[in-house]
Design a protein around this nucleic acid. Structure first.
Lengths: 113, 113
DNA sequence: AATATTGTTAAGTTGATACTTAACTATACA
DNA sequence: TGTATAGTTAAGTATCAACTTAACAATATT
């Protein structure tokens, strides 16, 4: 049995955050190592302010957490939030797949039984 | 080894499609049973035309496939596309988690070794 | 102390996207 | 044959999201 599922508002913000390609690029970079805001901004073709805004969205979604020490803010992934999104997807996928299996079994019975 | 990953353009459309709450509601309904366009529209507080447009986005992303027979178009989930999104997430999550593990091991060595 | 670096915030612009209505096509049904 | 049902398409609107610039704050460097 898979759990009852997370509050929809949380899932909403997670998937909304994942919907933007720049934010996914940031997540991709962060999967390799924690990084500062300007590290993350360097390869991206946009202002630092824009990147800051993306990081805020990612943090509000829970996909990223940040700490500031001195003048540099360091960002890192939050794997549990990734897992929440994965679960949303896999719950629906497997629900569907199990349905297909049952249907297949039913057809077999009809054929053989 | 996990594969090299799918063409980014495809992943883009998948996650963009997943970013909308109405579309996720449609996917949720479809995880339980295949449905016609008007079946899907009934619980949603918007015009049929709007729902049609959402379904088009879902179909272009590959999350849903549809066939029309007679005047009714039936929609169903495409589990492989769900799996593609799940893989994108889990690849990054596990990359990060393995990194954490290595770091933990390193600290242990330092402590004990 | 002066300067450079790092990040934050506010305000405005622009383009994308989620809707609407309306006109239409195609199929099923009485 | 006429009417209801199911869906499609086009065109317009309005909201939202992603950016910009600019002014600022805080910390580090020389």
């Amino acid at each position: 049995m898979t759990g009852a599922g997370m509050e929809p508002a949380k899932v909403d913000r997670i998937f909304q955050a994942l919907g933007d390609p720049t934010r996914r690029a940031i997540l991709d970079a962060l999967s390799r190592q924690p990084s500062s805001v300007s590290d993350l901004a360097r390869p991206l073709d946009m202002s630092l302010a824009a990147v800051v805004q993306h990081i805020q969205a990612l943090e509000e979604s829970g996909l990223v957490r940040t700490e500031k020490q001195g003048r540099v803010r360091t960002c890192h992934l939050m794997p549990e939030t990734f897992a929440t999104a994965e679960r949303w997807l896999s719950e629906r996928r497997t629900l569907w797949e199990r349905r297909l299996d049952r249907l297949g079994a039913l057809l077999d019975e009809e054929e053989n039984g």
